[in-house]
Write a protein that binds this DNA or RNA. Structure first.
Lengths: 345, 345
DNA sequence: TGCAGCAATGTTAGCGCTGTCATTTCACTT
DNA sequence: AAGTGAAATGACAGCGCTAACATTGCTGCA
């Protein structure tokens, strides 16, 4: 038990602010620094007695590991970056919440980056993120500029794309098909017997794509009376309301309005109510996303459900598998979708 | 111009994955590593010609700096942590968005931590965050456990608390007074002549505190007919609807419902509409937060405006001032609030 | 008794960068 | 031509940790 008090204050120098280091803990516990390191990272490689001594020393000193140093030495930062269009868009925030919680449980932290603000280019964002040497990255969408693709691939770390599907992902992808959703919504409204269709879509690549496939598919059902409405990208109630105003101004009436998000759909619903237009009798509404509020509007919103919790968790699992085993069963995972019919249709 | 091609492949060893380092850039540019470092961090300390050479070498090699190494050496990580209750609560997400964008402009990145999930204790969260050695931390609220206070203060880095006010902040604080809001809302509904008051408050420390001061203040106006309703913490439309159902079940009618968030208020509004209760004639509603949707409900929501953009930006500015100059004019900054009267009262 | 074999612990050498101080360069005086 | 000071650049050590290999101690078996 009695350990020699060898190796003392060897260095020092620049260390003005006296933060506690592994060496301090090691000295107090009477072991070498590597043993403390092992006690923290691989506790079962250390004898129980030693572990106890080390843990005592850690709590006595109030030691907080330095992951910069650890990451530099081990090339593992336990940091995962996630790039989403906007943190204030609940559908992304929710996905990330599930993604993060899974990764936190596995000992990782998530660094968030917002790509929706083109003032700072996506490339700069990615550079900034890569300079922290994350162990993996989550991306939203599949449309990356050539420069971004190059940067990401050069980093040689696991990547997971989400919110879309492609047969040729950068690495792995967990998402759903916007094309199939557009078609499914078209089939749904056609089957319900609507003959006039209005759209309120955000000026967002994926939203526009769903709208396009919706319209194309409607044509195959013989529905060509389409009134299109586009609103700027961050969707909110206001833009939904404006969306309906525009449709009405353009002569739309007595049909179904297909929206690119539940928020827009809710705005359309409110605008209809403010004009005493009966929903769904006069105007029906379909949203997208099945956000938590969709079941609680009045009438409740018919929409397309995306299983965001599952997408977030799966993205985390796939990334962890790639990081820890470097293996992965499937490169492309389709989480699918489901049309949820409620009161607005 | 012709530089000697001295210092060649000195080391190597563990560097299996051949990522580009400062040394590679330096060699290509024909300068020393420290010059490249300066070219990146203090470009005006480097001659224009040298800068050009270095920049050429950087883009030729595709060099991405390693902030782990840089942070370790310089003790500045350019990382700021922000702890918020939940990323899916828009009021916090929005504050953080402004906070982040300010900090991004200043060359910092924000690492988000969610404290709302008590499975992992706040203390663990803080430890995890501190192990990345952030240059500063944003905290939401002023109620930290003794252990957390100790950890935070021991880190000796700038801290900014938000969303509340106290004369004794850990470091600096940018927020508003929940007590004064409770009182102001009481004064407002009393002045509007309401004699019966219902509450729908989230089971959240600050919401409960506003409710308490509201009720106390109402008493001074002679209003004691209060029906209280509490709902679990993450607020959504559903809980707002349930809140009104409970109030009605408890006999509440013909009065004003004061809610602890705009989302709850919106839920109350929807539930009222679903029951054909006229708003504001039969039931009036007051929200809290003035979220972007508050002006777009029908009728539009009367609420308490908190200037979240300003709070976020100010928190960033104050933190930057503390980090870069270590000075700060005021320790306590009150961003105030404002009652916004719209259609639901 | 001696030694194989494994568990536990230690030594060494960096990881990639920047602070500090030292040196060189060069325009400008006198 | 020599001297001066500021600007530009460089050498070196070390930030705090861990990978890789080395050493020690100990069990068990021939």
């Amino acid at each position: 038990m009695a350990q020699s008090e060898s190796r003392q204050g060897r260095k020092s120098a620049r260390n003005g602010n006296s933060s506690v280091t592994l060496e301090d803990v090691a000295r107090l516990a009477g072991v070498s620094t590597i043993t403390v390191s092992r006690a923290l990272n691989y506790p079962d490689k250390v004898a129980a007695k030693t572990l106890a001594k080390v843990n005592r020393a850690i709590s006595q000193t109030g030691y907080v590991p330095n992951l910069l140093a650890g990451g530099l030495a081990s090339r593992r930062t336990r940091l995962i970056a996630a790039i989403i269009p906007s943190i204030t868009n609940l559908v992304y925030a929710e996905t990330i919440q599930y993604f993060s919680s899974r990764l936190n449980d596995a000992g990782y932290q998530v660094l968030l980056g917002e790509s929706g603000y083109p003032e700072q280019s996506e490339q700069k964002l990615i550079s900034a993120i890569l300079s922290r040497r994350p162990d993996g990255i989550l991306l939203t969408g599949v449309n990356h500029s050539a420069d971004c693709r190059r940067l990401l691939l050069a980093a040689k770390i696991p990547l997971v794309e989400t919110w879309d599907l492609t047969p040729t992902p950068l690495d792995v992808i967990v998402g759903f098909s916007h094309e199939r959703i557009g078609m499914a919504v078209a089939d749904f409204v056609a089957a319900k017997g609507y003959r006039r269709v209005g759209t309120v879509s955000a000026s967002d690549r994926r939203a526009q794509f769903r709208e396009k496939t919706l319209i194309d598919r409607l044509a195959t059902h013989g529905i060509t009376d389409i009134t299109r409405g586009e609103v700027p990208a961050p969707t909110d109630l206001h833009r939904g309301r404006i969306g309906l105003v525009r449709l009405l101004d353009d002569g739309f009436s007595a049909g179904v309005v297909c929206c690119s998000s539940d928020t827009l759909a809710h705005g359309v619903l409110i605008e209809a109510q403010s004009r005493a237009i009966r929903v769904p009798e006069e105007i029906a509404i379909v949203g997208f996303g099945d956000q938590s509020f969709a079941a609680d509007t009045f009438p409740a919103l018919s929409t397309v459900r995306i299983d965001r919790p599952r997408m977030g968790k799966l993205a985390a699992d796939v990334l962890l598998a790639r990081i820890e085993d470097d293996t992965v069963d499937e490169q492309v995972i389709d989480v699918g979708f489901e049309i949820v019919e409620r009161g607005t249709t």
